[in-house]
């Protein structure tokens, strides 16, 4: 099978490591398509990832790829972008990666409004390590480390990064691939810190069949108009923030000769 975007993949390393029905594979395909639409030069693009199921995505993308340490993908990406602002830097992270162990880097990247595109693949638990509770797991949910139900309140990643200063924030699910494709392309073309949160779920650890997962995504998640990030509810999808603010790489380079 050959189509427009297989050239962007390291097809010799397929099949991928993810479970059958996992949304990571969908995000990989959607990203490759979206990248094709942007017209961005592939060899001036660097793809960075953290650790976990989502971290493996860099392995299948035929770009300059950097698979970093757990939680630090944005910090590595910050160094890459600052050292060479010509580079288009895309960062893939999971929800545990981005919001727990790397939560500090997430809010600071947003605060700086550094021109990186963060694609946060949210399966609401730790998949690679066996299905433990994450900062995105809904209250009451039973996981391997919350056998009596999750006693904690989860983060809404999109609201978190919007509040921290991200200038493009969108959330879609692995069911809404057309919208997702457009959002990823927009995020890459956006100057400033852009975040696309992708809700994928986890068929393996949720013990749910992939078509049923898709059905939930199709029926529960709704796109509507918002006037403020405070209105965003967990089942809301869409482009929540789109604004232009001074970008960090340009500002830091302009310190001496403004």
């Amino acid at each position: 099978m050959k189509n427009v975007y297989t050239d962007l993949l390291r097809t010799e390393y397929l099949p991928h490591v993810w479970c059958a029905g996992c949304g990571n594979g969908i995000v990989l395909g959607v990203f490759a398509k979206a990248f094709g639409y942007t017209g961005i030069n592939r060899d001036s693009t660097v793809i960075v990832s953290g650790i976990g199921c989502s971290g493996r995505i860099t392995q299948y993308l035929n770009f300059d790829t950097v698979h970093t340490t757990h939680g630090r993908a944005l910090a590595f990406a910050t160094g890459i972008k600052l050292a060479n602002p010509e580079l288009n830097v895309v960062v893939f992270m999971g929800d545990g990666d981005a919001a727990a162990i790397g939560g500090n880097h997430l809010i600071h990247a947003a605060r700086r409004n550094i021109d990186l595109t963060a694609i946060i693949i949210n399966n609401s638990l730790y998949g690679m390590t066996g299905g433990q509770v994450a900062p995105t797991t809904p209250e009451g949910k039973v996981t391997k480390t919350t056998p009596f139900g999750n006693p904690e309140h989860p983060f809404d990643i999109s609201k978190l990064v919007a509040a921290a200063g991200a200038t493009y924030v969108a959330r879609f699910t692995s069911y809404h691939i057309k919208w997702l494709e457009k959002a990823i392309a927009e995020a890459m073309l956006h100057k400033g810190f852009s975040v696309v949160e992708v809700i994928i779920g986890c068929p393996t650890h949720w013990r749910i069949k992939p078509p049923e997962l898709m059905k939930i995504q199709k029926e529960k998640y709704r796109r509507r108009n918002y006037s403020s990030i405070h209105e965003i509810k967990p089942w809301d999808i869409g482009v929540f923030v789109r604004e232009i603010k001074p970008e960090f790489t340009e500002r830091i380079r302009g310190i001496i000769n403004p």
Binding site: V46, T68, R72, A75, F76, T78, G79, A83
Partner: peptide, 26 residues
């Protein structure tokens, strides 16, 4: 050159490594 004060040391070393990969002497 670039000087950046990061949010912690985890970020500082990571940014330095990222910069080195991108061609900086970091």
């Amino acid at each position: 050159g670039i000087f950046v004060q990061m949010e912690d040391e985890l970020a500082s070393i990571s940014a330095a490594i990222g910069a080195a990969l991108a061609g900086a002497r970091a």
